[in-house]
Simulated assay, not measured.
Amino acid sequence: MKTLYIVRHAKSSWKYESVKDIDRPLKERGINDAHLISKFLAKNIKRPDVFVSSSANRALHTAVIFCENFGYPLANLQINRQLYSFSDGYLVKTVKALDDNFDSAIIFSHDHGINTFVNKFGNKPIAHVTTCGVIGIQFDEKHWKNIKKGNTILTEFPKNHK
């Protein structure tokens, strides 16, 4: 059995026009939402075995907040540049390449790839994963590379906790 949590990065700022997209920081609201959701999850789910983040500043900052609230060592946070993509292709490749010694994983990524992924691999239609939204999917597989359709076991969005 494999369990995957997919997190869309928290709300980012468009305030800095000269900043490249990959370097966009979180807004204060995003920081607050990341703490809100990660504290809730830390109390309600078993800590995932591995944390993997896109290299984009907004995803990485979200992941750091989750690491802090889950008590996951920052030194173990894996950064995957390929997750800075807006299609589900790299997300699928990243998940299927996870080490089978990990029974659970949490991945921090981006809008379009996440929406496509959770609807392709989960069994609950989700119209839109909001910023800092978390979707959990459980797969009846021993190997990550074999994942197919799984069971959506968790849908959490910041608006449900305010």
Rank of each mutant, 00 (worst) to 15 (best):
K142G: 10
E17I: 07
I65R: 12
P25C: 02
S13D: 15
K20N: 15
L77H: 06
N146R: 14
A10L: 04
F108D: 10
A56G: 08
L26K: 02
P125H: 14
K162Y: 15
K124H: 06
T155E: 13
Y5R: 00
G150H: 09
A42F: 03
C132M: 09
D88T: 05
A42N: 08
G30M: 06
H112W: 01
I22T: 03
D100G: 08
D103M: 10
M1L: 10
K145I: 00
N69W: 12
E68R: 11
D111Q: 13
A63T: 05
N101P: 00
T131R: 03
L91H: 12
T131C: 03
K142Q: 13
L77Q: 01
G89F: 13
V118M: 04
H61V: 03
F108M: 12
K46H: 00
S85Y: 12
K96C: 09
N119P: 05
K159Q: 13
D140V: 05
L74G: 12
P158R: 15
K159C: 07
P48F: 09
N69F: 06
S54M: 05
H35I: 11
E68G: 02
T130Y: 09
A97I: 00
F66T: 08
G89C: 07
H143K: 15
Y5D: 02
L4F: 07
G89L: 14
D49I: 01
S104L: 04
S13K: 13
L60W: 15
A75I: 10
R81L: 08
L26C: 06
G89Y: 11
K27T: 15
M1Q: 14
Y84M: 06
I31D: 01
L4N: 04
A97Y: 02
N123W: 05
I135G: 01
K15G: 08
R24S: 00
Y90M: 06
K39R: 15
D111K: 12
A42D: 04
T62E: 13
F40R: 09
K93N: 13
W14P: 07
V7P: 01
I79D: 04
D23I: 02
D21T: 08
N123C: 06
K124F: 08
V129K: 10
K148G: 15
V52D: 07
N119D: 06
T155D: 11
S55I: 08
I79P: 01
G89M: 10
G122C: 05
D23L: 02
S12Y: 02
N101A: 13
V64N: 14
F70H: 01
S104K: 07
S55M: 12
D99E: 14
R58L: 08
T130G: 07
R58H: 12
T62G: 10
I107K: 00
I153N: 02
V7T: 10
L36M: 11
S87H: 10
I135A: 03
A105G: 05
R29D: 13
Y72N: 04
D49C: 03
I65A: 07
H35C: 03
G30P: 02
N32E: 15
C67R: 05
K2S: 02
N160F: 05
I45M: 03
N146I: 05
S13L: 09
H143R: 15
P48N: 14
E141I: 05
F139Q: 08
W14N: 11
T3N: 11
F70C: 05
L41G: 00
W14L: 09
L60N: 12
A127L: 14
Q82M: 10
D49K: 02
D111M: 09
I106D: 00
I65S: 09
I45Q: 08
H161K: 13
